[in-house]
Amino acid sequence: MADNDHVNSEPFPAVVVMVPFVAQGHLNQLLHLSRLVSAYNIPVHFVSTIHCIAQARSRHRSFSHLSGVSTQIHFHEFPTPPFTTPPPDTSIPFPTHLQPSFDSTLHLRHHVADLIRSLSRKAKRVAVIHDVLMSYVVQDVKSIPNAETYVFQPPPAFYRAASHWENTGGSFPVDLELMNQLPSQDGISSPEFFKFVKLQRSHMNFHVGELYDSSRVIEGKFIEYLQREEISGKTKIWAIGPFNPVLQKVNSTIQETRQKCLQWLDNQPAKSVIYVGKYYLGISP
């Protein structure tokens, strides 16, 4: 089911389909990106499970109310088979208790493919932006001539570059003494989750490029490392963040202003603040 779904007599030059992963940090990032894209009058179709779409709609309405800026996003909710989520247990690897919900996303594949085929008949071009952990779901896009996929990488570029360095060694644009003090990723996730990640990797060979919720001003040397190492298979990498909204209400009008956190940052001495990128799952294909 979709919000504001209608047929336009004239084909759109382009539409965007967002396919987020079913974890809160992932969902929020692509919802913020959807708002930014739709602000340019590009139709955005946001696709997920019934439960996640309910959350996305609520957050979209809340932000529109707080900011006073309304953008149109078409939400599409699709059912998945029922599953049981066990309670969190610190004695078992993360994210074991969430794995049933992760596995349920595999059932979205045909729903998403049908939607994209339908949109491809109404638009000249369909750009599918999907979370890296939803690569299996969008695998049928490669059979649609006027559609293409872009992988969204939720973690910071540093995290992905550091993971690659840990696995392969070699030169890295950070003091190696510091890197050697960071904890290893060994054993931080369950075998079932790594199996899920491996499945996603097997469907990542046809995308146009990768998107990061980051900036070259902040992470330029790590993005350059990813490009130099050709981790993405010679595809393009775009740092198009930060997605987090920076509009606020001032005297009943909307103005693009510096938020308090940015005003505080402006007042700090040069090179006195450390940027820490937080990633919800801590795992990246």
Rank of each mutant, 00 (worst) to 15 (best):
M179R: 06
T149L: 09
A2G: 03
P88G: 02
A2C: 13
S104C: 12
K236A: 05
F63I: 12
G209K: 13
A23F: 04
E177W: 08
H107E: 13
V22I: 03
A161I: 12
G170M: 08
S284H: 10
S34V: 06
L66Q: 10
S120K: 12
S202I: 01
W264H: 09
S34Y: 08
T84K: 15
S64W: 10
V128G: 03
E230W: 03
E192D: 13
D213M: 05
L31E: 01
V19P: 00
P156A: 09
A56N: 01
S284M: 09
I218A: 03
S9F: 08
V112P: 05
T71Q: 13
T49K: 07
P88H: 15
I218V: 14
N205H: 15
I129Q: 02
I53M: 02
R121F: 14
I53K: 01
P13K: 10
Y136K: 09
R228V: 11
I188H: 05
S70V: 10
R121P: 00
V69I: 11
A14D: 06
E210P: 00
P285F: 03
V112N: 02
S189A: 14
P242N: 03
H65G: 01
T90I: 07
H107K: 13
K271Q: 14
S184T: 15
V15E: 12
L31R: 03
A39G: 09
S232C: 10
N244R: 07
A157L: 13
R59V: 04
Q153V: 12
L247I: 10
S252M: 14
I218W: 08
R61L: 11
P86C: 02
V47R: 03
V69W: 12
A162D: 02
M134F: 10
P242C: 02
P191Y: 08
N244L: 14
I223Y: 04
L211V: 01
V217P: 00
M179L: 15
K124L: 09
D186N: 05
V246S: 02
G241F: 08
G277Q: 07
D5H: 15
S67E: 07
M18C: 07
P145R: 13
A113L: 05
S202W: 10
F206R: 08
P20K: 05
V273W: 13
H65W: 07
D89F: 09
Y212H: 15
S62T: 14
A270F: 15
L182A: 12
P79K: 09
S214C: 05
A123I: 03
L265C: 06
I144K: 01
L182E: 14
Q99M: 14
K142P: 02
Q99K: 00
M204D: 04
I231C: 10
I73A: 06
S202R: 05
I129R: 10
I92W: 08
S91F: 08
G169H: 06
S70D: 05
R228N: 09
P88A: 13
K195I: 04
P285R: 07
H76Q: 08
N205T: 09
S70I: 06
W165D: 08
Y225P: 04
D89P: 00
T96P: 00
S70R: 11
F46C: 04
H130T: 02
V37A: 04
F196G: 05
V208W: 07
S189Y: 06
A270Y: 10
F83L: 00
V47S: 11
G241W: 04
R160P: 02
H107L: 12
T105H: 11
E10S: 10
S143C: 07
S252V: 03
S190K: 12
D89M: 00
E230S: 03
N205E: 11
